[in-house]
Design a protein around this nucleic acid. Structure first.
Lengths: 232, 232
DNA sequence: AATATGCTTTGACTTAGGTCAAGGGGAGAT
DNA sequence: ATCTCCCCTTGACCTAAGTCAAAGCATATT
Protein backbone atom coordinates (compact mmCIF):
# COMPACT_ATOMS: atom_id res chain seq x y z
CA UNK A 1 0.00 0.00 0.00
CA UNK A 2 2.77 2.41 1.01
CA UNK A 3 4.96 1.09 -1.78
CA UNK A 4 2.07 1.50 -4.22
CA UNK A 5 1.89 5.20 -3.40
CA UNK A 6 5.68 5.49 -3.74
CA UNK A 7 5.42 3.97 -7.21
CA UNK A 8 2.78 6.50 -8.22
CA UNK A 9 4.89 9.34 -6.82
CA UNK A 10 7.84 8.19 -8.94
CA UNK A 11 5.63 7.93 -12.01
CA UNK A 12 4.33 11.44 -11.37
CA UNK A 13 7.84 12.92 -11.28
CA UNK A 14 8.42 11.51 -14.77
CA UNK A 15 5.43 13.28 -16.32
CA UNK A 16 6.33 16.45 -18.32
CA UNK A 17 3.27 18.31 -17.03
CA UNK A 18 4.74 18.01 -13.54
CA UNK A 19 8.30 19.08 -14.39
CA UNK A 20 9.83 21.67 -12.13
CA UNK A 21 7.34 21.48 -9.29
CA UNK A 22 8.37 21.79 -5.64
CA UNK A 23 8.83 18.39 -3.98
CA UNK A 24 5.85 18.76 -1.67
CA UNK A 25 3.54 19.04 -4.64
CA UNK A 26 4.57 15.57 -5.82
CA UNK A 27 3.33 14.22 -2.50
CA UNK A 28 0.12 16.16 -2.85
CA UNK A 29 -0.39 14.95 -6.42
CA UNK A 30 0.28 11.36 -5.36
CA UNK A 31 -2.25 11.88 -2.60
CA UNK A 32 -5.07 12.86 -4.93
CA UNK A 33 -4.23 10.63 -7.91
CA UNK A 34 -6.46 7.65 -8.70
CA UNK A 35 -4.84 4.75 -10.54
CA UNK A 36 -6.98 3.25 -13.32
CA UNK A 37 -6.38 0.54 -15.93
CA UNK A 38 -8.22 0.02 -19.20
CA UNK A 39 -8.19 -2.86 -21.63
CA UNK A 40 -7.62 -2.26 -25.32
CA UNK A 41 -10.91 -1.19 -26.89
CA UNK A 42 -12.32 0.01 -23.58
CA UNK A 43 -14.06 3.38 -23.45
CA UNK A 44 -12.53 5.79 -20.92
CA UNK A 45 -15.09 8.54 -21.25
CA UNK A 46 -17.77 9.52 -23.76
CA UNK A 47 -18.60 12.74 -25.52
CA UNK A 48 -21.02 14.69 -23.36
CA UNK A 49 -19.94 13.03 -20.11
CA UNK A 50 -19.39 15.48 -17.28
CA UNK A 51 -15.71 16.29 -17.02
CA UNK A 52 -14.77 15.68 -13.44
CA UNK A 53 -11.01 15.58 -13.63
CA UNK A 54 -7.80 15.37 -15.61
CA UNK A 55 -6.38 12.14 -16.98
CA UNK A 56 -2.68 11.46 -17.50
CA UNK A 57 -1.58 8.43 -19.47
CA UNK A 58 1.16 6.44 -17.72
CA UNK A 59 1.42 3.62 -20.24
CA UNK A 60 -0.39 2.43 -23.34
CA UNK A 61 -2.16 4.35 -26.09
CA UNK A 62 -5.40 6.35 -26.03
CA UNK A 63 -7.31 7.88 -28.91
CA UNK A 64 -9.69 10.78 -28.57
CA UNK A 65 -12.24 10.87 -31.35
CA UNK A 66 -15.60 12.05 -32.67
CA UNK A 67 -18.25 9.92 -34.33
CA UNK A 68 -20.70 10.75 -37.10
CA UNK A 69 -24.31 9.45 -36.97
CA UNK A 70 -23.30 6.80 -39.54
CA UNK A 71 -20.45 5.67 -37.33
CA UNK A 72 -17.55 7.18 -39.19
CA UNK A 73 -14.75 8.16 -36.82
CA UNK A 74 -12.52 11.19 -36.88
CA UNK A 75 -9.62 10.75 -34.48
CA UNK A 76 -8.58 14.07 -32.95
CA UNK A 77 -5.40 12.80 -31.33
CA UNK A 78 -3.60 9.67 -30.29
CA UNK A 79 -1.93 10.02 -26.88
CA UNK A 80 1.19 8.28 -25.68
CA UNK A 81 2.71 7.77 -22.25
CA UNK A 82 3.21 10.95 -20.24
CA UNK A 83 0.47 12.95 -21.93
CA UNK A 84 -2.53 14.46 -20.15
CA UNK A 85 -5.94 14.25 -21.80
CA UNK A 86 -9.52 15.11 -21.01
CA UNK A 87 -8.33 18.61 -20.15
CA UNK A 88 -10.90 20.43 -22.23
CA UNK A 89 -13.40 20.01 -19.43
CA UNK A 90 -11.26 20.60 -16.36
CA UNK A 91 -10.80 24.34 -16.59
CA UNK A 92 -13.94 25.40 -18.41
CA UNK A 93 -16.26 23.08 -16.52
CA UNK A 94 -17.87 21.71 -19.63
CA UNK A 95 -18.66 18.13 -20.70
CA UNK A 96 -16.09 16.13 -22.65
CA UNK A 97 -16.19 17.21 -26.32
CA UNK A 98 -15.14 13.78 -27.64
CA UNK A 99 -14.87 10.08 -26.78
CA UNK A 100 -11.70 8.56 -25.34
CA UNK A 101 -10.77 4.93 -25.79
CA UNK A 102 -7.71 2.83 -25.00
CA UNK A 103 -6.18 1.40 -28.18
CA UNK A 104 -4.04 -1.00 -26.18
CA UNK A 105 -4.00 -1.92 -22.50
CA UNK A 106 -3.42 1.38 -20.74
CA UNK A 107 -2.74 2.75 -17.25
CA UNK A 108 -4.01 6.18 -16.43
CA UNK A 109 -3.73 8.49 -13.41
CA UNK A 110 -6.87 10.46 -12.73
CA UNK A 111 -6.79 13.79 -10.86
CA UNK A 112 -10.14 15.03 -9.56
CA UNK A 113 -10.88 18.51 -10.79
CA UNK A 114 -11.35 20.51 -7.57
CA UNK A 115 -8.22 19.06 -5.97
CA UNK A 116 -6.18 19.66 -9.10
CA UNK A 117 -7.33 23.26 -9.35
CA UNK A 118 -6.33 23.80 -5.71
CA UNK A 119 -2.84 22.57 -6.51
CA UNK A 120 -2.66 24.94 -9.47
CA UNK A 121 -3.51 27.82 -7.18
CA UNK A 122 -0.61 26.93 -4.92
CA UNK A 123 2.15 27.14 -7.49
CA UNK A 124 2.22 28.82 -10.90
CA UNK A 125 4.65 26.25 -12.40
CA UNK A 126 1.87 23.72 -12.77
CA UNK A 127 -0.32 26.33 -14.45
CA UNK A 128 2.46 27.41 -16.81
CA UNK A 129 3.23 23.80 -17.72
CA UNK A 130 -0.46 23.22 -18.41
CA UNK A 131 -0.68 26.41 -20.48
CA UNK A 132 2.28 25.26 -22.57
CA UNK A 133 0.66 21.87 -23.17
CA UNK A 134 -2.69 23.37 -24.14
CA UNK A 135 -0.91 25.84 -26.45
CA UNK A 136 0.94 23.03 -28.22
CA UNK A 137 -2.31 21.11 -28.50
CA UNK A 138 -3.99 24.12 -30.10
CA UNK A 139 -1.31 24.26 -32.73
CA UNK A 140 -1.67 20.53 -33.39
CA UNK A 141 -5.39 21.09 -33.89
CA UNK A 142 -4.69 24.02 -36.21
CA UNK A 143 -2.49 21.70 -38.27
CA UNK A 144 -5.24 19.05 -38.33
CA UNK A 145 -7.80 21.63 -39.52
CA UNK A 146 -5.36 22.76 -42.22
CA UNK A 147 -4.83 19.15 -43.29
CA UNK A 148 -8.52 18.32 -43.43
CA UNK A 149 -9.55 21.46 -45.26
CA UNK A 150 -6.62 22.34 -47.46
CA UNK A 151 -4.99 19.03 -48.26
CA UNK A 152 -6.12 15.95 -50.07
CA UNK A 153 -5.75 12.54 -48.44
CA UNK A 154 -2.49 11.59 -50.21
CA UNK A 155 -0.92 14.81 -48.95
CA UNK A 156 -2.01 14.02 -45.43
CA UNK A 157 -0.62 10.52 -45.59
CA UNK A 158 2.64 11.78 -47.02
CA UNK A 159 2.90 14.33 -44.20
CA UNK A 160 2.23 11.63 -41.65
CA UNK A 161 4.90 9.30 -43.05
CA UNK A 162 7.40 12.16 -43.03
CA UNK A 163 6.42 12.95 -39.43
CA UNK A 164 7.05 9.33 -38.39
CA UNK A 165 10.42 9.46 -40.14
CA UNK A 166 11.31 12.69 -38.36
CA UNK A 167 10.41 11.11 -35.02
CA UNK A 168 13.03 8.44 -35.73
CA UNK A 169 15.99 10.58 -36.86
CA UNK A 170 14.89 10.72 -40.46
CA UNK A 171 15.01 6.96 -41.02
CA UNK A 172 13.61 5.65 -44.32
CA UNK A 173 12.38 2.45 -42.62
CA UNK A 174 9.09 3.08 -40.84
CA UNK A 175 6.73 0.93 -38.87
CA UNK A 176 3.21 2.30 -38.54
CA UNK A 177 2.48 2.89 -34.88
CA UNK A 178 -1.20 1.98 -35.13
CA UNK A 179 -3.56 -0.24 -37.11
CA UNK A 180 -4.31 1.07 -40.58
CA UNK A 181 -7.99 1.52 -39.81
CA UNK A 182 -6.98 3.78 -36.90
CA UNK A 183 -4.58 5.68 -39.11
CA UNK A 184 -7.37 6.20 -41.64
CA UNK A 185 -9.47 7.75 -38.88
CA UNK A 186 -6.60 10.01 -37.81
CA UNK A 187 -6.07 11.20 -41.38
CA UNK A 188 -9.75 11.86 -41.91
CA UNK A 189 -10.47 9.08 -44.36
CA UNK A 190 -11.60 5.44 -44.53
CA UNK A 191 -9.56 2.22 -44.70
CA UNK A 192 -10.43 1.59 -48.38
CA UNK A 193 -9.10 4.98 -49.42
CA UNK A 194 -5.94 4.65 -47.29
CA UNK A 195 -5.26 1.27 -48.84
CA UNK A 196 -5.68 2.56 -52.39
CA UNK A 197 -3.38 5.51 -51.76
CA UNK A 198 -0.65 3.35 -50.24
CA UNK A 199 -0.86 1.17 -53.35
CA UNK A 200 -0.63 4.14 -55.69
CA UNK A 201 2.31 5.55 -53.76
CA UNK A 202 4.03 2.18 -54.07
CA UNK A 203 3.31 1.96 -57.81
CA UNK A 204 4.73 5.44 -58.31
CA UNK A 205 7.94 4.52 -56.52
CA UNK A 206 7.41 6.83 -53.55
CA UNK A 207 7.39 3.99 -51.00
CA UNK A 208 7.65 0.24 -50.53
CA UNK A 209 4.88 -1.09 -48.33
CA UNK A 210 4.64 -4.48 -46.60
CA UNK A 211 1.98 -4.63 -43.95
CA UNK A 212 2.88 -2.08 -41.30
CA UNK A 213 6.41 -1.67 -42.60
CA UNK A 214 6.92 1.18 -44.99
CA UNK A 215 10.17 2.19 -46.62
CA UNK A 216 10.54 5.66 -48.06
CA UNK A 217 11.91 5.44 -51.60
CA UNK A 218 11.38 9.03 -52.79
CA UNK A 219 11.49 11.48 -49.93
CA UNK A 220 11.36 14.55 -52.17
CA UNK A 221 8.30 13.17 -53.88
CA UNK A 222 6.59 12.64 -50.53
CA UNK A 223 7.54 16.16 -49.47
CA UNK A 224 6.04 17.61 -52.63
CA UNK A 225 2.81 15.70 -51.93
CA UNK A 226 2.77 16.76 -48.27
CA UNK A 227 3.20 20.43 -49.25
CA UNK A 228 0.40 20.16 -51.80
CA UNK A 229 2.91 21.10 -54.51
CA UNK A 230 1.98 18.03 -56.43
CA UNK A 231 -0.81 15.46 -56.54
CA UNK A 232 -0.69 11.69 -56.56
CA UNK B 1 -1.27 60.66 -21.61
CA UNK B 2 -2.45 59.89 -18.07
CA UNK B 3 -6.05 59.73 -19.31
CA UNK B 4 -4.98 57.44 -22.14
CA UNK B 5 -3.61 54.95 -19.60
CA UNK B 6 -6.80 55.29 -17.54
CA UNK B 7 -8.83 54.43 -20.63
CA UNK B 8 -6.74 51.33 -21.24
CA UNK B 9 -7.09 50.31 -17.59
CA UNK B 10 -10.88 50.59 -17.87
CA UNK B 11 -10.86 48.56 -21.08
CA UNK B 12 -8.73 45.92 -19.38
CA UNK B 13 -11.21 45.51 -16.53
CA UNK B 14 -13.91 44.72 -19.10
CA UNK B 15 -11.98 41.83 -20.66
CA UNK B 16 -13.17 38.35 -19.52
CA UNK B 17 -9.62 37.02 -19.38
CA UNK B 18 -8.94 39.58 -16.63
CA UNK B 19 -12.05 38.94 -14.56
CA UNK B 20 -11.54 38.51 -10.84
CA UNK B 21 -7.99 39.80 -10.67
CA UNK B 22 -6.74 41.90 -7.73
CA UNK B 23 -6.87 45.63 -8.44
CA UNK B 24 -3.12 46.07 -8.51
CA UNK B 25 -2.84 43.67 -11.41
CA UNK B 26 -5.02 45.94 -13.55
CA UNK B 27 -2.47 48.70 -13.04
CA UNK B 28 0.34 46.30 -13.91
CA UNK B 29 -1.47 45.08 -17.03
CA UNK B 30 -2.16 48.66 -18.10
CA UNK B 31 1.51 49.35 -17.57
CA UNK B 32 2.71 46.66 -19.94
CA UNK B 33 -0.06 46.86 -22.56
CA UNK B 34 0.69 48.30 -25.99
CA UNK B 35 -2.21 49.84 -27.89
CA UNK B 36 -2.34 48.98 -31.62
CA UNK B 37 -4.81 49.73 -34.39
CA UNK B 38 -5.25 47.87 -37.67
CA UNK B 39 -7.23 48.72 -40.78
CA UNK B 40 -9.62 46.21 -42.31
CA UNK B 41 -7.61 43.80 -44.43
CA UNK B 42 -4.40 44.49 -42.56
CA UNK B 43 -2.23 41.56 -41.52
CA UNK B 44 -1.57 41.46 -37.76
CA UNK B 45 0.88 38.57 -37.79
CA UNK B 46 1.84 35.80 -40.20
CA UNK B 47 2.20 32.07 -39.83
CA UNK B 48 5.75 31.32 -38.77
CA UNK B 49 6.34 34.73 -37.19
CA UNK B 50 7.97 34.57 -33.79
CA UNK B 51 5.31 34.80 -31.10
CA UNK B 52 6.42 37.54 -28.79
CA UNK B 53 3.24 38.27 -26.88
CA UNK B 54 -0.49 37.93 -26.39
CA UNK B 55 -3.06 39.98 -28.29
CA UNK B 56 -6.47 40.95 -26.93
CA UNK B 57 -9.08 42.42 -29.26
CA UNK B 58 -10.70 45.55 -27.86
CA UNK B 59 -12.90 46.35 -30.85
CA UNK B 60 -13.37 45.14 -34.38
CA UNK B 61 -13.09 41.65 -35.89
CA UNK B 62 -10.03 39.48 -36.49
CA UNK B 63 -9.77 36.23 -38.38
CA UNK B 64 -7.06 33.65 -37.83
CA UNK B 65 -6.55 31.44 -40.86
CA UNK B 66 -4.33 29.08 -42.83
CA UNK B 67 -3.59 29.25 -46.54
CA UNK B 68 -2.98 26.52 -49.09
CA UNK B 69 -0.31 26.89 -51.78
CA UNK B 70 -3.08 27.69 -54.28
CA UNK B 71 -4.37 30.44 -52.03
CA UNK B 72 -7.43 28.72 -50.61
CA UNK B 73 -8.14 29.90 -47.08
CA UNK B 74 -9.34 27.93 -44.11
CA UNK B 75 -10.43 30.26 -41.32
CA UNK B 76 -9.73 28.74 -37.90
CA UNK B 77 -11.65 31.31 -35.90
CA UNK B 78 -13.16 34.77 -36.09
CA UNK B 79 -12.54 36.79 -32.93
CA UNK B 80 -14.75 39.51 -31.52
CA UNK B 81 -14.19 42.19 -28.90
CA UNK B 82 -12.85 40.95 -25.59
CA UNK B 83 -11.16 37.83 -26.94
CA UNK B 84 -7.43 37.08 -26.68
CA UNK B 85 -5.62 35.60 -29.67
CA UNK B 86 -2.13 34.67 -30.70
CA UNK B 87 -1.89 32.66 -27.49
CA UNK B 88 -0.59 29.49 -29.12
CA UNK B 89 2.88 30.95 -29.07
CA UNK B 90 2.96 32.70 -25.70
CA UNK B 91 3.22 29.70 -23.43
CA UNK B 92 4.98 27.20 -25.66
CA UNK B 93 7.43 29.66 -27.17
CA UNK B 94 6.71 28.59 -30.71
CA UNK B 95 6.01 30.63 -33.87
CA UNK B 96 2.46 31.59 -34.76
CA UNK B 97 0.72 28.59 -36.35
CA UNK B 98 -1.54 30.73 -38.57
CA UNK B 99 -2.05 34.19 -40.07
CA UNK B 100 -4.12 36.86 -38.30
CA UNK B 101 -5.86 39.65 -40.17
CA UNK B 102 -8.32 42.39 -39.21
CA UNK B 103 -11.60 41.97 -41.07
CA UNK B 104 -12.70 45.45 -40.09
CA UNK B 105 -10.87 48.32 -38.42
CA UNK B 106 -9.71 46.85 -35.12
CA UNK B 107 -8.05 47.95 -31.89
CA UNK B 108 -5.88 45.46 -30.10
CA UNK B 109 -3.97 45.47 -26.80
CA UNK B 110 -0.64 43.67 -27.00
CA UNK B 111 1.00 42.16 -23.89
CA UNK B 112 4.69 41.25 -24.26
CA UNK B 113 5.30 37.63 -23.40
CA UNK B 114 7.86 37.82 -20.57
CA UNK B 115 5.93 40.54 -18.72
CA UNK B 116 2.67 38.65 -19.12
CA UNK B 117 4.20 35.42 -17.81
CA UNK B 118 5.51 37.30 -14.78
CA UNK B 119 2.01 38.51 -14.02
CA UNK B 120 0.67 34.97 -14.32
CA UNK B 121 3.22 33.84 -11.76
CA UNK B 122 1.96 36.45 -9.30
CA UNK B 123 -1.63 35.37 -9.17
CA UNK B 124 -3.26 32.06 -10.19
CA UNK B 125 -6.56 33.71 -11.22
CA UNK B 126 -5.03 34.93 -14.45
CA UNK B 127 -3.67 31.46 -15.16
CA UNK B 128 -6.98 29.80 -14.39
CA UNK B 129 -8.84 32.29 -16.61
CA UNK B 130 -6.36 31.60 -19.41
CA UNK B 131 -6.69 27.83 -18.91
CA UNK B 132 -10.47 28.15 -19.17
CA UNK B 133 -10.16 30.14 -22.41
CA UNK B 134 -7.70 27.70 -23.98
CA UNK B 135 -9.92 24.79 -22.93
CA UNK B 136 -12.96 26.34 -24.60
CA UNK B 137 -10.89 27.05 -27.69
CA UNK B 138 -9.79 23.39 -27.81
CA UNK B 139 -13.41 22.31 -27.80
CA UNK B 140 -14.21 24.80 -30.56
CA UNK B 141 -11.39 23.30 -32.60
CA UNK B 142 -12.66 19.80 -31.89
CA UNK B 143 -16.04 20.89 -33.22
CA UNK B 144 -14.40 22.38 -36.34
CA UNK B 145 -12.48 19.13 -36.98
CA UNK B 146 -15.72 17.19 -36.56
CA UNK B 147 -17.47 19.53 -38.98
CA UNK B 148 -14.77 19.34 -41.63
CA UNK B 149 -14.32 15.60 -41.45
CA UNK B 150 -17.72 14.22 -40.61
CA UNK B 151 -20.18 16.71 -42.07
CA UNK B 152 -20.94 17.87 -45.56
CA UNK B 153 -21.02 21.58 -46.34
CA UNK B 154 -24.84 21.97 -46.08
CA UNK B 155 -24.70 20.49 -42.58
CA UNK B 156 -21.99 22.91 -41.58
CA UNK B 157 -23.92 25.87 -42.92
CA UNK B 158 -27.08 24.72 -41.17
CA UNK B 159 -25.16 24.38 -37.90
CA UNK B 160 -23.74 27.86 -38.35
CA UNK B 161 -27.15 29.43 -38.98
CA UNK B 162 -28.54 27.69 -35.91
CA UNK B 163 -25.57 28.94 -33.89
CA UNK B 164 -26.25 32.54 -35.02
CA UNK B 165 -29.88 32.11 -34.05
CA UNK B 166 -28.91 30.75 -30.64
CA UNK B 167 -26.64 33.76 -30.09
CA UNK B 168 -29.69 35.98 -30.60
CA UNK B 169 -32.22 34.24 -28.34
CA UNK B 170 -33.37 31.81 -31.01
CA UNK B 171 -34.56 34.51 -33.43
CA UNK B 172 -35.56 33.35 -36.91
CA UNK B 173 -34.30 36.59 -38.47
CA UNK B 174 -30.55 36.46 -38.93
CA UNK B 175 -27.99 38.81 -40.37
CA UNK B 176 -24.71 37.22 -41.39
CA UNK B 177 -21.93 38.74 -39.33
CA UNK B 178 -19.33 38.55 -42.09
CA UNK B 179 -19.04 38.65 -45.87
CA UNK B 180 -20.10 35.43 -47.57
CA UNK B 181 -16.64 34.76 -48.94
CA UNK B 182 -15.34 34.92 -45.35
CA UNK B 183 -18.12 32.62 -44.17
CA UNK B 184 -17.20 30.17 -46.93
CA UNK B 185 -13.65 30.12 -45.60
CA UNK B 186 -14.86 29.54 -42.02
CA UNK B 187 -17.07 26.65 -43.15
CA UNK B 188 -14.26 25.06 -45.14
CA UNK B 189 -15.66 25.69 -48.58
CA UNK B 190 -15.60 28.23 -51.46
CA UNK B 191 -18.00 31.10 -52.28
CA UNK B 192 -19.52 29.27 -55.28
CA UNK B 193 -20.46 26.26 -53.17
CA UNK B 194 -21.83 28.41 -50.34
CA UNK B 195 -23.97 30.33 -52.82
CA UNK B 196 -25.38 27.14 -54.39
CA UNK B 197 -26.23 25.67 -51.00
CA UNK B 198 -28.00 28.83 -49.83
CA UNK B 199 -30.05 28.71 -53.03
CA UNK B 200 -30.94 25.05 -52.55
CA UNK B 201 -31.91 25.66 -48.94
CA UNK B 202 -34.16 28.50 -50.09
CA UNK B 203 -35.73 26.36 -52.83
CA UNK B 204 -36.43 23.61 -50.31
CA UNK B 205 -38.17 26.05 -47.97
CA UNK B 206 -35.59 25.82 -45.19
CA UNK B 207 -34.72 29.53 -45.33
CA UNK B 208 -35.44 32.80 -47.07
CA UNK B 209 -32.25 34.56 -48.13
CA UNK B 210 -31.78 38.19 -49.21
CA UNK B 211 -28.18 39.29 -49.24
CA UNK B 212 -26.90 39.01 -45.69
CA UNK B 213 -30.38 38.65 -44.23
CA UNK B 214 -31.54 35.12 -43.71
CA UNK B 215 -34.84 34.05 -42.24
CA UNK B 216 -35.23 30.55 -40.87
CA UNK B 217 -38.39 28.96 -42.29
CA UNK B 218 -37.89 25.33 -41.23
CA UNK B 219 -35.84 25.08 -38.05
CA UNK B 220 -36.39 21.34 -37.68
CA UNK B 221 -35.17 20.81 -41.22
CA UNK B 222 -32.03 22.80 -40.52
CA UNK B 223 -31.46 20.83 -37.31
CA UNK B 224 -31.75 17.56 -39.20
CA UNK B 225 -29.17 18.82 -41.71
CA UNK B 226 -26.86 20.06 -38.96
CA UNK B 227 -27.00 16.69 -37.19
CA UNK B 228 -26.26 14.87 -40.44
CA UNK B 229 -29.60 13.07 -40.08
CA UNK B 230 -30.58 14.21 -43.53
CA UNK B 231 -28.95 15.59 -46.64
CA UNK B 232 -29.85 18.58 -48.75
C1' DA C 1 -22.80 59.40 -66.04
C1' DA C 2 -19.08 56.31 -66.56
C1' DT C 3 -15.70 53.33 -64.73
C1' DA C 4 -13.41 50.31 -61.52
C1' DT C 5 -13.46 47.00 -57.94
C1' DG C 6 -14.96 43.41 -55.11
C1' DC C 7 -18.48 40.33 -54.06
C1' DT C 8 -21.92 37.10 -55.51
C1' DT C 9 -24.31 33.94 -58.48
C1' DT C 10 -24.90 30.50 -62.05
C1' DG C 11 -23.45 27.08 -65.61
C1' DA C 12 -20.72 23.30 -67.34
C1' DC C 13 -17.42 20.15 -66.37
C1' DT C 14 -14.12 17.23 -63.65
C1' DT C 15 -12.50 14.48 -59.92
C1' DA C 16 -11.31 12.96 -55.15
C1' DG C 17 -13.08 10.12 -52.25
C1' DG C 18 -17.07 7.72 -50.29
C1' DT C 19 -20.38 3.51 -50.52
C1' DC C 20 -21.26 -1.18 -51.02
C1' DA C 21 -19.81 -5.70 -52.04
C1' DA C 22 -16.70 -9.39 -52.11
C1' DG C 23 -12.75 -11.87 -51.07
C1' DG C 24 -7.97 -12.73 -49.06
C1' DG C 25 -4.88 -13.14 -45.05
C1' DG C 26 -3.39 -13.54 -40.35
C1' DA C 27 -4.08 -14.51 -35.57
C1' DG C 28 -6.46 -16.69 -31.96
C1' DA C 29 -9.65 -20.21 -30.26
C1' DT C 30 -11.46 -24.81 -30.41
C1' DA D 1 -7.03 -29.04 -38.91
C1' DT D 2 -10.88 -26.06 -38.79
C1' DC D 3 -13.47 -22.14 -37.53
C1' DT D 4 -14.13 -17.35 -36.20
C1' DC D 5 -13.04 -12.71 -36.16
C1' DC D 6 -10.83 -8.70 -37.54
C1' DC D 7 -8.11 -6.28 -40.66
C1' DC D 8 -7.00 -5.25 -45.25
C1' DT D 9 -7.45 -4.97 -50.25
C1' DT D 10 -9.73 -4.45 -54.63
C1' DG D 11 -13.63 -3.56 -57.88
C1' DA D 12 -17.55 -1.05 -59.54
C1' DC D 13 -20.29 2.73 -59.00
C1' DC D 14 -21.92 7.29 -57.38
C1' DT D 15 -21.84 12.03 -55.74
C1' DA D 16 -20.40 16.23 -53.17
C1' DA D 17 -17.76 19.71 -54.08
C1' DG D 18 -14.07 21.94 -56.54
C1' DT D 19 -12.43 24.38 -61.02
C1' DC D 20 -12.99 27.57 -64.55
C1' DA D 21 -15.65 30.83 -66.96
C1' DA D 22 -18.95 34.31 -67.39
C1' DA D 23 -22.09 37.58 -65.93
C1' DG D 24 -24.80 40.32 -62.48
C1' DC D 25 -24.91 43.50 -58.54
C1' DA D 26 -23.54 46.96 -55.21
C1' DT D 27 -20.42 50.37 -53.82
C1' DA D 28 -16.86 53.70 -54.42
C1' DT D 29 -14.26 56.72 -57.35
C1' DT D 30 -13.57 59.84 -61.08
Amino acid sequence: MERQSAVIRREITAIPLFNGLPQRQYDQLAGIALDRSYAGGQRIFSEGDEGIGLYVLVSGTVKVYKLSPEGKEQTLHVFGAGEPFGEASVFAGQPFPAHAEALAESRVLFFPRAAFVELIKEDPSLALNMLAILSRRLRTFAALVEDLSLKEVPGRLAAYLLYLSEQRDLTDDLILDMAKNQLASLLGTIPETLSRILSRMARQGLIHAAGRRIKIMDRRGLEALAQAERRL
